[in-house]
Design a binder for these strands. Structure first.
Lengths: 205, 205
DNA sequence: ATATGTAGTGAGTACTCACTCATTTTGCTT
DNA sequence: AAGCAAAATGAGTGAGTACTCACTACATAT
């Protein structure tokens, strides 16, 4: 029974994440959040002035904290290894915070303040490591001279499509893959292209 | 003044799409939908039993109609041309229905009935054309023998990331690109890979 | 003219929700 | 143990909501 002691405020935030992400911000009631947190409804308002304040508090340093830029030790590693480890690291983070991620993404549409915070603190930061790496590889001439912002987002999109599919929509109903295998194939497509190596003309020009 | 005559029901649906997509299902009030549609609140309930019925009606044949499978005339065309035209076609559809797309995607999380409908009728169908084409190219040995379901979703994700970014999050605040150029680069990355290859004859400057 | 059916209205109703506050409980200090 | 402030409580409040219904307006048939 090593129960970690959590501040009442955090306790309420955790409950809010769960309820918000299940019902949406407008669909959730403070009563339910209170029940989920195991406190009285009134207690919530000792820590947050309004229901919306709870939501806004969730995009702050709280999550950013766990997004501490992973320093990638790229020295002597292959591109495959580096990209794979970046992707796995990011996926791990998302999985650990999946409820929060879903919530922030969804509600960002309706709350401009949240949107700013979310994009700058979470999305931009998450994309940063990758963009930097790709930029370097382009500079050194090992990657094509494409726009690094496009290139990084393209890879994020490739991986993101599967996360979105699985976590936002249908779970494993239609497709489910071994994650390692999935990442491997994606990185492979990304790095070397889908066109067969021994390609002969016909298509090219 | 060639005003197209629209049924009252459609008029309400159109208004609902606008209000729902701006405020979310729970954030929208029937009063506002009525005002937006230019009818009395009571009128809404002559056509829909409940507010939720309005929402559910939106994922039906209405949108699917506009997703009529575009037959791609691939004969003699390069992969670049085919993929580009598929992507452009899909982007066009999404743009025309951007409010509805945002709405369905967002609310699919909270309404299982909607989710089934949306995924099967919209997402699956939209992905179908591409998957089929890729599958063929793999069979003919022109594409690597990757899993076509992975490959198709990877491309969708690449493109989707930009749509999501632009339409769901921040508009043009952080990045904006010429769409044709963007698609060109994405298709290029996808088809030939980001890694510089000697046989490509230098990078395309 | 009169009757009948249909579409439309908007004030009213029953109910829900975010938030308040008078009261009780907790935990600390002496 | 007594005193006290901070923390916690939950019934209460008023603003607002989805939905109803008694009614009006108008078209068509008799």
């Amino acid at each position: 029974m090593d129960r970690v002691i959590i501040s009442r405020e955090q306790q309420i935030k955790d409950a809010a994440i769960r309820v918000f992400s299940k019902k949406g911000f407008n669909g959730a009631t403070t009563k339910e959040i209170a029940r989920e947190a195991g406190v009285a409804e009134g207690t919530i308002f000792r820590y947050f002035r309004t229901k919306k304040d709870i939501l806004l508090s969730l995009a702050g340093p709280y999550i950013v904290e766990s997004l501490k830029t992973t320093l990638i030790n790229a020295a002597g590693k292959s591109d495959e290894a580096v990209l794979t480890s970046i992707i796995k690291n990011r996926l791990e983070l998302i999985k650990e915070n999946i409820d929060l991620a879903r919530l922030l993404f969804t509600e960002a549409q309706f709350h401009p303040e949240l949107r700013e915070n979310f994009t700058e603190n979470v999305v931009m930061r998450a994309a940063g490591v990758l963009e930097k790496y790709i930029d370097e590889r382009i500079s050194s001439g090992d990657f094509k001279a494409v726009d690094p912002r496009i290139a990084s987002r393209a890879l994020i999109g490739m991986v993101g499509a599967f996360v979105l599919w699985k976590e936002f929509l249908l779970g494993d109903k239609y497709i489910s893959f071994d994650e390692d295998e999935l990442i491997k194939q994606l990185v492979d497509i990304y790095l070397t292209g889908i066109r067969a190596e021994e390609w002969e003309g016909g298509m090219g020009s």
